[in-house]
Each structure stands twice: as structure tokens, then as C-alpha cells.
Amino acid sequence: MQRVNMIMAESPGLITICLLGYLLSAECTVFLDHENANKILNRPKRYNSGKLEEFVQGNLERECMEEKCSFEEAREVFENTERTTEFWKQYVDGDQCESNPCLNGGSCKDDINSYECWCPFGFEGKNCELDVTCNIKNGRCEQFCKNSADNKVVCSCTEGYRLAENQKSCEPAVPFPCGRVSVSQTSKLTRAETVFPDVDYVNSTEAETILDNITQSTQSFNDFTRVVGGEDAKPGQFPWQVVLNGKVDAFCGGSIVNEKWIVTAAHCVETGVKITVVAGEHNIEETEHTEQKRNVIRIIPHHNYNAAINKYNHDIALLELDEPLVLNSYVTPICIADKEYTNIFLKFGSGYVSGWGRVFHKGRSALVLQYLRVPLVDRATCLRSTKFTIYNNMFCAGFHEGGRDSCQGDSGGPHVTEVEGTSFLTGIISWGEECAMKGKYGIYTKVSRYVNWIKEKTKLT
């Protein structure tokens, strides 16, 4: 034993070699072989497995989906700052455009905790909710729209109204504003409101030439003092309507412009014939205590009207009353817009006519005020429907199939267009061939041609 100890002390290297040989010859039971080890760690190889990531292109799944990435790591994937920024906006807080917040056709661009709407022409605001041009839906104005110097929408209202708090709607500024039905039992019968379409306001006024200088022999019209197929109006439903009495009662109609003036057809009036105007009328054979009678003290036909040349060209006249009318729910003026808007309103496509005229061709006159909704007829169809001249200051309205029309005794009465609950004068009943005849239409004086003249002559002093 002493000898062994001496050998170990003198030859430590020998001992180490012996131990190493023993270990190498022993069977290893701690580690699995290569094949079995792979069965336990069965993990798919990654895209760049075996390579240094710093030297390969980034992978979106590896960089940002398996674990949260930084902007720089995302930049490695896209290799483009702009594309990385677009991805980053949604990656950080989701897609803010998912709810489609942009209105009126706006395009949404996502941002971090926010979004941006790219608005089409005519709109602005956070969600493109603000109209900035009158060309689109009248700028959301209830009545009139004008573009300011910086191309912003400025709404306005006709006389007797003021802008509401929203700067879009119009509200009454006087007790009985024009064009409004205020009798409670008839307010439910107000005709369907007309909503502004998209309009090209630059070209809204037709490029028409008034044929002022045409000389033409007097034409022989049949029954051209021209509501057939209409309905009984309720008291106060058309408070701007008046009836004219002269040699015979209810020979023509008219509309209240203001307390002192009536507008009617020029062919209705004769110099030297006494005319009485009755406002607030409903049943011409009954006294309903809503009527107001006034005498006409002055007749002003349009300066281009000449019955000797043509009885229905420039067929418009103004009547001055001896005493002002007292405005109330049964006696209310009709609204008159400017030339541009009167023309736009007419193009809405349908209007209402009213009167006490004959209820059928050569038949009896109506006792109760009649009204009828009539569609506008395109000019080409209008011209083809008659052998008589249709001037540019006239328009056609009615039904091709016949059966409904204005008729004798309705002449001078109103053709009105309702705009968001307020009625505007767009025409004056003038003439036609018979009444409600198939293929024939009622012919009306186009008020847009005469609004400046009306307003100039009827100013209240």
C-alpha cells in the first residue's frame, strides 16, 4: 500500500490518463441519441435557420407576430419608411378606419389613436360632414345658397324668414311668412316636400332668348283662358290664391305678392273693366268669414305684352289694390325667389296649380277651390304637342294621358313649387288646347323671366 501511494504521488498524470480511459469505455446513459432527441424537440425550422439574422431580410411573422416588435424591426421587413409607417399605425392600436367614419364618399386613412378623412370636392370637416359648395344638395341650405369668396357655403332665406341657429334652416321672422300653410287642420295635408338634388348652379339658368321682337298675326285659340281631375282644397291650404270678379264672377285667378299687390295673367284683364279681388276665398257660393274683398285701382301688364300681336306672350300683369290686405292664416303671400332659384325650383319637376275653373272641358265651374299636382314636361315634348308657338318664356306641365289639367277660369292662378315646406311661385296658368285632352298640356308663363320686374313694381313704400 505504501508503494502504491508513492507511485500516485510521483505520477499524477498517469492516474488522470487511467481515469479518462475508464470513462470513455463506459456506456453513456444520461444523453439520448440524435434521433430520439429530435422526437422530443420537434420544432419547425425557421426561415433563416442556421444563418445569422443580421444578414437576412426581415420576416413579418418572425419579427412582429411571434413577439412584439419595434418600429426598427418592422422597418427591416418593409425596407421602406412609408410602408412601415402605414403598417405601424394599425399594428400599434388597430384600424381606426374600420367603422368607416368618413361621410359623403370620403376616404379614410388610419393613424395612431386617430384617423384622417380625405374629402371629395365640396366637403370638409373631420368626417367630411361639412358642405362647402352650393353645387351639392344646395349646400344643405333649406332655401338659398351662395358661395363666399373663400368658396364656403353661405345660406340665406327669402323675405319674412331668418336663418336658424344651425345656419342652414329657415324659420319665420314674421307672423305670416310667405308660402307657408298655417291653418292647423290643413298642415297635415301639406304636399310632399321637395329635397334639393345635386345641381350645376353655374349652368342652372337656361341660355334662352326671349323672342321679344317676333311679330306674329293673332292666333285663334280655343278655350285658351284655361282644375280638371283635381281635388277639393281645404280652407287655408292655398292662402296665396285669390279669385278675380268682373263682368262675371271667378273669371280668373291670381296670387298675393304682398298686402297691396296681386300677380295674374295679362290676358285676364281689360282696361276700363272694374275688377274686384277676393282673398281668403274657399267656396265661392258661401260666406265663410275668411274672405277679404278689395278693388283694383291700377293694372300693370308687362311692358312687352301686346294682345294685338299675341294674347299669351309675356302673359303676366300686376294688380294694385285700393287697401292693403290683412295677412292671416287664410290670406298669405306666395314666396318669389330670384331668377336663378325660381328656375331651379321649376326644374324640380312638379308643381301645384289651383283655381275655381271648370271641372271638365266646357263644363261647370268649381264651387270649392280645386288643386292638382302636375309634372313638368320637357321642352321637346311640349313643342311636338301643339302647332302653336311655345315661346321661351312659357313652359308645359300636365299629363300625356289627359284627364287632369287646369281649365277655363283658372287662368292667372299660381303654379307653385314647394321647397322644404315653403311654396314659391314658378308659373302662372296661361293657356292650353281644350282641357285635359290626351297628348295636350297646360301652358304656363315662366315666372323666372319676370321676377325682377315683379319685385321692382310691387315694392311697398
Rank of each mutant, 00 (worst) to 15 (best):
A26I: 11
E53M: 08
D131Y: 08
V377K: 04
P177R: 01
H34D: 11
S329M: 09
V183L: 08
E159I: 07
A308W: 05
E286W: 08
K109N: 09
S255F: 01
S70R: 10
G355I: 04
C407Y: 05
H34F: 08
R364P: 08
C435L: 03
G21A: 13
K137R: 14
Y161V: 01
V243T: 10
C97T: 01
Y91C: 04
L52G: 09
V359G: 13
G421Y: 04
E193P: 15
R364G: 09
V183I: 13
F251P: 06
I443G: 02
P301M: 11
L32E: 12
H415N: 01
T271H: 14
Y330S: 03
V263I: 11
M437W: 11
Y371F: 13
Y201M: 12
F176M: 05
D93K: 06
S406G: 12
Y201K: 14
V257E: 00
I284R: 13
A397D: 02
D338W: 03
L60T: 07
C396I: 02
I284M: 06
T422E: 01
E79W: 11
H415C: 02
L19Y: 06
K440L: 03
K446A: 08
I344L: 15
V359Y: 12
D322K: 03
T209W: 08
L130Q: 15
E116R: 02
A337M: 02
V30L: 14
V248K: 12
V277H: 00
R373F: 04
C178I: 01
W453I: 00
E61W: 06
Q185H: 13
K234L: 09
G355K: 09
I454R: 00
E73H: 09
C134M: 03
E86C: 04
K89T: 12
G21S: 13
I275M: 07
T417K: 01
A380N: 09
F388T: 13
D410P: 15
G403S: 15
S217Y: 11
S329A: 10
I300T: 04
I390Y: 14
T386S: 12
L319D: 00
K260L: 09
G58L: 10
L103T: 09
G363Y: 08
K68V: 12
L460A: 07
G427S: 00
R358Y: 06
G413N: 05
C128G: 00
S11A: 11
D33W: 07
S365H: 14
N100G: 04
T85K: 05
L41A: 15
V242G: 00
E259T: 06
L189W: 10
S184K: 10
K109S: 07
F78E: 15
G357T: 15
C407W: 11
T458Y: 02
I112T: 13
